[in-house]
Amino acid sequence: MNKEEIFKMIVQHTCEVIPELEDHTFKSGDQLKELGANSVDRAEIISLAMESLSLQIPMVEVFGAKNLDELATLLYENQ
């Protein structure tokens, strides 16, 4: 996946975990926490994203991302 596809995939999983966001217009600077994702939700979204990429790296390596764009970048660089 390219970075744009990864971003869309993260958005898809975010809506899956938090269905209340289905009408939200996602931006690259969006932060999961500000979108209402608690720590379990964030772990769930990241886990789903890693599964979509068949990416088996320690989850802690992508915990540093400050927003969706940075998360997409980290996942892109680790795939």
Partner: peptide
């Protein structure tokens, strides 16, 4: 066989 992807919840 894919335990690493087990849902955190």
């Amino acid at each position: 066989g894919r335990e690493a992807f087990l849902r955190p919840v």
